[in-house]
């Protein structure tokens, strides 16, 4: 019998939660930039799916049999192109952002499935990014398992958190993004090209969504099945609101959600009972969602800094 004690379970759960928080983190960090510049991209889900399919297809033997790094680059390019398209629609043409986002989600879902059917014909697998043990650190009890035995995309995702904070808060770039999101007219008056900034954040956001998809299909589970993200793109957008547009808090949200989600699987695995009776699996499955809402209610954050111009298109001279 191989029974884990509670600490071991905790370590395993955290390690898996970190792994499965990766796609949320990529997508949500990208979305932070997009929203900080005043645009809501609800098309993340579709962009993730396109990234997930194109990357594994390139890597799999049914496709090119390429190195996972190539797959990652392909996912970035595909995501960026979709982000660019979203920018044309929502920035240049000033289309309503919620609806065009849903349009992109439908488009990405449909196209990824169609390509999957035409090119792959059925479920595809590939040898993707493997776990990368950080020498020394990976041997630390528990901590090593949780933090230092992950694949390279997971390290990258978490590394991007402080980088994002730095970019947003300490660089001219970040300043421009925030200005454009807060008060585009003022930014424009100061000589910032509002449209250009929003184009760039949307392209970056699309790229990150593509990488988020790839982090599932060629890292966490090297396999693709149609609609494999199943709403994770929307969760990622929700996490941006959870984190109040702060990368650190977004990371906290992604981890909280993933940890709660992973723990409920453990609760199911070990048939967790309350007052002697087992809990229906579907009720346990609600826990991460309920918890996310509750934490937000009780955390009593400081005033969240919602970008004032979020979802508002900008036309020079109108505002």
């Amino acid at each position: 019998m191989n029974n884990l004690n509670i600490v071991q379970i905790g370590a395993e759960a955290l390690a898996l939660a970190v792994l499965f928080a990766t796609p949320f983190l990529f997508a949500a960090l990208g979305e932070v930039f997009v929203q900080r510049s005043g645009v809501l991209n609800l098309g993340v889900e579709g962009m993730m799916l396109m990234g997930a399919f194109t990357s594994i297809y390139v890597v799999s033997s049914k496709g090119l049999g390429a190195d996972p790094v190539i797959g990652l680059l392909v996912a970035m390019v595909v995501g960026a192109l979709l982000g660019l398209a979203m920018a044309v629609v929502s920035v240049t043409l000033q289309a309503e952002q919620g609806i065009s986002g849903i349009g992109f989600t439908l488009f990405g879902l449909g196209l990824s499935t169609l390509l999957f059917k035409l090119l792959a014909g059925g479920v595809i697998t590939a040898r993707g990014f493997q776990s990368l043990y950080i020498p020394g650190l990976s041997d630390i009890p528990y901590i090593g398992k949780i933090l230092f035995q992950q694949n390279v995309l997971t390290y990258l995702a978490f590394a991007l958190v402080p980088i994002s904070v730095w970019v947003l808060n300490k660089t001219t770039w970040g300043l421009q993004i925030r200005a454009v999101g807060q008060n585009p007219a003022a930014a424009d008056a100061m000589g910032v090209n509002v449209a250009r900034v929003r184009y760039l954040t949307l392209i970056f956001g699309g790229m990150m969504a593509g990488v988020a998809g790839a982090s599932l299909s060629i890292a966490a589970l090297p396999v693709f099945q149609e609609n494999m993200t199943e709403g994770r793109g929307f969760i990622a957008v929700a996490l941006v609101y959870f984190g109040g547009w702060s990368p650190w808090k977004v990371m906290g949200g992604a981890l909280l959600f993933s940890i709660a989600n992973n723990l409920q699987y453990w609760a199911q695995n070990y048939n967790l009972q309350i007052a002697g009776s087992p809990i229906a699996p579907n009720l346990l499955l609600m826990v991460p969602y309920v918890l996310t809402i509750l934490v937000l209610v009780f955390a009593r954050q400081r005033r969240r800094q919602e970008p004032a111009a979020l979802t508002k298109p900008f036309t020079r001279g109108e505002n």
């Binding site: 309503e96 349009g103 439908l106 488009f107 169609l114 035409l118």
Partner: peptide, 25 residues
């Protein structure tokens, strides 16, 4: 045709029609 074709088409319709608001506005 694969049913996904329809999903792509719906996505395109949504994107194009919502973009056309630009001229309406």
């Amino acid at each position: 045709v694969p049913s996904a074709t329809i999903t792509v088409l719906q996505g395109l319709v949504v994107i194009f029609v919502v973009s056309s608001d630009f001229w309406v506005r």
